[in-house]
């Protein structure tokens, strides 16, 4: 009898030990990303010593800022088992409207940012309503609205560009200005990341987003309003895209009909690299941040390594596929280990 008890506690301990190991896999994953980034940086630095200079690093992070802002919003959408292909078009639409407002009325930059965000939220709510209320598949709904938004952008612009000379200095300074010596874009990204980290990890609503993605049925039984959560995540991503639109136009000093075409794919790539599960329920702010950093470094480094810019799209596609396949293989081996441990 005694032996039996000992064996049992032994078993429990073994269980918890291996569980800890499993739980740590997500941490390993981020560690792995960091290690990979370090190795990559070392390699690039070895090939081109202008890589790790303060200016280049500053440049690189500034470039990655917009991407990282969008990625954290996309993460929430992916966590709820959704996808949003319309954000490139939202960026263009909000950027175009804001640029035209600036060129005509020279509005205050803060007001412009606010207008951009509102435009984005309106677009996002539209996505959310189609998906949550009418029940259209996320990919279909956002694909359709992507075209509506893109078409609207062309209509509003009449096919013409808004160029830097039409923009006010104060507007252009949104992306070039600095706070305490740090570029505004980086500051904005940091603020957004702090807010999102807090909301996602330390508020009920944040956890409800994950609950809906992890098991929609149980979420309903637990009294979570799924529709509300879905509309919330799509409008949040919409708002971030609207903000990104303003930042984009200010940074590149031009607004065009085809601004940010296909950018949604880059953003999704960042999320996948950062370990966000497309099946929903899992994804971390820190992972997404690392993913954005990694892609930012790659984009910055390819020209430094004399790789033709035409290789970029292909490399990005390959990275996405490799990342999702690796994820799957890791998950499979974990599941298999679980089975082997089961005693028959």
């Amino acid at each position: 009898m005694n032996e039996h008890v000992i064996q049992q506690t032994d078993n429990i301990e073994k269980h918890t030990l291996s569980n800890k190991l499993l739980a740590n896999i997500s941490k390993f994953r981020e560690l792995g990303l960091i290690v990979f980034i370090v190795i990559l940086c070392a390699f690039i630095q070895w090939r081109n010593s202008s890589f790790l200079t303060i200016e280049n690093i500053n440049d690189m992070i500034t470039n990655a800022a917009i991407l990282s802002i969008l990625a954290v919003g996309m993460m929430l959408v992916l966590v709820t088992r959704g996808i949003d292909l319309s954000i490139g078009a939202i960026i263009a639409l909000s950027g175009m409207i804001c640029a035209q407002l600036v060129s005509q009325f020279s509005l205050n930059p803060l007001l412009i940012i606010l207008i951009g965000i509102v435009i984005g939220i309106v677009c996002g709510v539209l996505n959310g309503v189609l998906i949550a209320k009418i029940g259209i598949l996320p990919i279909i709904a956002t694909l359709a609205l992507m075209n509506v938004f893109r078409g609207l952008t062309y209509r509003i612009s009449n096919g013409e560009w808004v160029s830097s000379y039409q923009m006010t200095d104060s507007f252009l300074s949104i992306a070039t200005g600095k706070v305490f010596g740090i570029n505004n874009l980086i500051v904005i990204a940091i603020v957004i990341y702090i807010i999102f980290y807090y909301v996602i990890n330390h508020t009920v609503i944040g956890r409800q987003i994950y609950a809906v993605g992890s098991n929609p049925e149980s979420a309903k039984v637990s009294g979570i309003n799924e529709n509300k959560i879905l509309i919330l995540v799509y409008s949040t991503l919409g708002g971030l895209s609207g903000l990104a639109g303003v930042l984009w136009v200010s940074k590149f000093a031009s607004a065009q009909g085809d601004t940010a075409t296909g950018y949604e794919l880059t953003v999704i790539a960042v999320c996948i690299l950062g370990g966000v599960s497309i099946a929903g329920g899992a994804g971390k702010v820190s992972g997404v941040l690392l993913g954005a950093l990694l892609l930012g470094i790659l984009q910055n480094a390819l020209p430094l390594l004399n790789v033709s810019p035409f290789w970029q799209t292909g490399i990005q596609g390959a990275i996405i596929l490799i990342a999702v396949i690796l994820n799957t293989l890791v998950k499979r081996s974990v599941d298999r280990n679980n089975l082997v441990r089961r005693k028959i």
Partner: peptide
């Protein structure tokens, strides 16, 4: 909820939050 922690599963629907800041 397989992706959430044991704690979250236990407290889902009746989470403990700070009365002032609504922080978990």
């Amino acid at each position: 909820f397989p992706d959430l922690t044991v704690t979250e599963n236990i407290f889902m629907g009746h989470e403990k939050v700070s009365p002032i800041t609504r922080r978990l």
